[in-house]
């Protein structure tokens, strides 16, 4: 198992519903990924910015960590976890 730190900006289609934020699809490195499962979510405050983190799985064994910064309204691909 190995992790790759990325911090790549990404585009995300997400659902804001009943106070809950759910990523549905994201475009990363010219490819669109459909989120099949959200494994876990957590938040972290850094100054006045609040980061919402999502650990998600798409159509493979990889685990993607996405973050949404509520201040800059930007999505980031934080980390990719491979299964080796």
């Amino acid at each position: 198992m190995s992790d790759t730190e990325l911090l790549d900006p990404i585009e995300v289609i997400a659902l804001f519903q009943q106070g809950k934020l759910t990523p549905i699809k994201f475009r990363w490195r010219e490819r669109v990924y459909k989120v099949f499962r959200i494994n876990g979510t957590w938040r972290q405050r850094d100054g006045t910015a609040l980061y919402h983190y999502f650990s998600v799985c798409c159509d493979g064994p990889e685990v993607y960590e996405l973050s949404f910064n509520n201040e800059s309204q930007a999505w980031t691909m934080e980390r990719l976890r491979h299964q080796t």
Binding site: M1, G40, W42, S55, P61, V63, Q83
Partner: peptide, 10 residues
Amino acid sequence: AVEMRDNPNL
């Protein structure tokens, strides 16, 4: 448990 939740491979 939190690590396993966020990384099912574990």
